[in-house]
């Protein structure tokens, strides 16, 4: 893991560019994919929280999958869903306590954030740097809040 995805809700203005970027980045055959990121009202005035998968170390989705379709990509650190292995039982969708495993109704697929394979589109397009994909410097164990 060389980089880390960082969400800073304080910087988010709720413009939903990330949502759009995600849907475009995950389009299939020219049809938009379901966004894996949602800026949601954080309960305070003008505070938005971009809610997306934070690739938990001990992930509920991975635990819930009975066919091992969810596996961590050691290069990006993202928990990736192997679409070919997925049996669409909805276990991960129901199990994720952050609601970041989703059903893409249009494509009839279960989807989750895969960090775009190492170059997240949401972070690339975020105008306020509320979403960043930063190289890890120094000790990789230190976790930024």
């Amino acid at each position: 893991m060389k980089a880390r995805f960082i969400v800073s809700p304080v910087l988010c203005i709720g413009c939903r560019t990330c949502e759009l970027a995600c849907a475009f980045a995950h389009a299939i055959d020219g049809k938009l994919g379901k966004s894996r990121i949602y800026p949601i009202d954080g309960g305070f005035k003008e505070l938005w929280v971009p809610v997306t998968c934070l690739q938990c170390e001990e992930a509920a989705c991975v635990k819930s999958c009975l066919v091992n379709a969810l596996q961590r990509n050691p290069e990006t650190g993202a928990v990736e869903l192997n679409q070919e292995k997925c049996v669409k039982c909805m276990a991960c969708v129901a199990a994720c306590p952050f609601g970041c495993s989703l059903l893409d109704e249009q494509h009839e697929l279960v989807v989750k954030c895969d960090l775009c394979g190492g170059d997240p589109a949401c972070a690339r397009f975020c105008p306020t740097k509320a979403l960043e994909y930063k190289p890890i410097k120094g000790s990789p164990k230190k976790i930024a809040v």
Binding site: Y38, F44, W48, P97, L102
Partner: peptide, 22 residues
């Protein structure tokens, strides 16, 4: 974990993180 749907999970995540961010 299974008591609420994915959308409500996202909402409550936003509220929790919002509180911390505040």
């Amino acid at each position: 974990y299974f008591n609420i749907c994915d959308e409500c999970h996202r909402r409550s995540t936003a509220l929790d993180m919002g509180r911390i961010a505040s």
